[in-house]
Amino acid sequence: KWEEIAERLREEFNINPEEAREAVEKAGGNEEEARRIVKK
């Protein structure tokens, strides 16, 4: 599940997989929260 979210974030925000994974981890697997983290 987290991998899927990280993949979507990576494609959408054009970030590297590591950044995407970190955002999802910080968000506890919550996609909306992960998006907010990435946008900062």
Rank of each mutant, 00 (worst) to 15 (best):
N14S: 11
E19P: 04
N14W: 07
K40D: 15
E33F: 06
E4H: 11
E12H: 06
E19G: 05
V38N: 01
K39R: 11
E19Q: 13
G29R: 03
N16A: 11
K1H: 11
W2A: 06
E7H: 12
F13D: 01
E19D: 08
E19Y: 10
W2N: 06
R35P: 00
E11M: 15
A6H: 04
E32Y: 08
E31W: 13
E22H: 12
A23W: 05
E11F: 13
W2H: 07
V38F: 06
I5N: 01
R35K: 08
E3F: 12
E7Y: 09
E7A: 10
V38H: 03
R35Y: 06
I15E: 02
A23G: 03
E25D: 09
W2Q: 04
E25T: 10
R35Q: 04
W2K: 05
V24L: 12
A6S: 07
K26Q: 04
E7N: 12
G28A: 10
E12S: 05
A34P: 00
N30W: 05
V38G: 03
R21N: 07
K26P: 00
F13L: 07
N16E: 13
K39Q: 15
R10F: 06
R36I: 10
E4Y: 07
I15Y: 01
E32I: 07
R21Y: 12
R10Q: 13
A6Y: 07
N30L: 07
R35E: 04
R36G: 10
A27M: 03
I15F: 03
E19I: 11
N14L: 09
E18A: 07
E4W: 10
N14Y: 08
E33A: 08
E7V: 12
K39A: 14
R10H: 07
R10T: 10
N14T: 06
E11Y: 13
K40V: 14
R36K: 12
I5T: 04
W2R: 05
A23N: 02
R21P: 01
G28Q: 15
E19L: 13
W2F: 08
E4Q: 12
E22I: 13
K26N: 10
L9W: 02
K1W: 10
N16F: 07
K26E: 11
R36F: 06
I15W: 02
G28I: 07
E32Q: 09
N30Y: 05
E12Q: 07
